[in-house]
């Protein structure tokens, strides 16, 4: 029996034209890497933490974009996996584990297990029913967290002793920032690579015509479940990093409104676009941060921006910058 992995890649899949624009990601990465060193000179120390949070949410958005944009799975419960990752860190801390790597690794594994179980049930439904089931599961996780008194229940759980990064701890005060940046770059590069792989093409084929892909011999359910589980695992990593970033975890992290916000961020950036997730997060969180300086009613201008995006870039802001990318 053939499997997806044994079939040949379409010719040209993954090939990208080389141009000056292809250097842009490296320039952005270099600027981000230099930011903690430059920021103090301009009195921007506060924004080191802000950018770190931005990068963590970008990881979550990239994972959602993978199933939403490439897989056509409109999930309204992605924050549930972020929460599972965060609460796994809490459980590890409570159990006396002090290593960040162990806690984050376990967060990835546990989130993947939750995603596989939830996906196994919810992927049997489609469209709005799939959306409702993922929402229901996420809310179940939310109320489960509220009921966990050992982990603070509704009040949340404070992590008073920051997790250790092992030998990296003594290198620099902002070492956690660079670790987050490296992980975000890794997740983004991996997600981009998978998107142009045979698996990514099969996923996009399923998004475009599920019946046709099944009739061509592709195990549609299995492919979607693998994608959903992978995305859940990455969202769990984002949750674990968020727990370390805030040194605090509360059930609000996995409330359905958080899932909806992630969804809107990806939609603003561009669903199924390589830069869609990071761009949407950067726009949303930066605007919110700036607008909060001027008004507590910052949702209003963001709402206006949403309307403008719908009218002028209905497929996301990323489409304004892209050349024709036929594989997406």
């Amino acid at each position: 029996m053939s499997s997806v992995a044994t079939l040949p890649l379409p010719a040209g899949a993954g090939a990208r034209p080389r141009s000056a624009a292809s250097l842009l990601p490296w320039v952005v990465l270099a600027v981000l890497a230099a930011f903690p060193l430059i920021a103090p000179a301009f009195g921007l120390e506060y924004y080191i933490g802000f950018v770190r949070r931005l990068l963590i949410v970008m990881i979550a958005a990239t994972s959602l974009n993978f199933i939403l944009g490439y897989g056509g799975m409109v999930a309204l419960g992605h924050a549930g996996f972020v929460g599972v990752g965060a609460y796994t860190v809490v459980a590890m801390v409570e159990a006396g584990v002090g290593s960040a790597w162990a806690a984050w690794g376990m967060a990835i594994v546990i989130s993947a297990v939750f995603a596989a179980a939830i996906g196994a049930v919810s992927l049997r439904a489609r469209g709005v029913y799939f959306l409702m089931i993922t929402l229901a599961f996420a809310q179940m996780l939310y109320y489960l967290a509220v009921s966990l008194r050992t982990y603070g229940g509704d009040d949340g759980y404070g992590i008073y002793t920051p997790l250790s990064l092992g030998g990296l701890d003594g290198l620099h005060a902002d070492i956690f920032y660079w670790v987050v940046l490296a992980l975000a770059a890794l997740v983004f590069a991996f997600s981009s690579r998978v998107a142009v792989s045979r698996f990514g093409h099969a996923l996009m084929g399923i998004r475009d015509n599920e019946t046709r892909m099944a009739a061509m011999g592709y195990p549609v359910y299995r492919i979607k479940l693998v994608a959903f589980t992978g995305a859940g695992a990455v969202a769990g990593l984002a949750g674990a990093l968020l727990a370390s970033h805030n040194n605090f975890v509360s059930p609000s992290l996995m409330h359905w409104t958080e899932s909806a916000t992630l969804l809107v961020m990806v939609a603003i950036g561009g669903m199924g676009k390589r830069w869609g997730g990071p761009l949407g997060v950067a726009i949303w969180l930066t605007l919110a941060e700036v607008l909060k300086l001027y008004t507590e009613y910052w949702h209003w201008p963001i709402g206006l921006m949403l309307i403008l995006v719908v009218f002028f870039a209905p497929k996301g802001v990323a489409t304004l910058f892209e050349r024709k990318e036929k594989t997406q």
């Binding site: 093409h201 084929g205 009739a215």
Partner: peptide, 24 residues
């Protein structure tokens, strides 16, 4: 293998890619 009513070609694949993507 079925050639479905309505053809159902993928808009985001070239002709060549159509013929290589499923080849086996």
């Amino acid at each position: 293998a079925i050639v479905p009513e309505g053809r159902q070609c993928f808009p985001n694949l070239t002709v060549r890619e159509h013929l290589l993507a499923f080849a086996d």
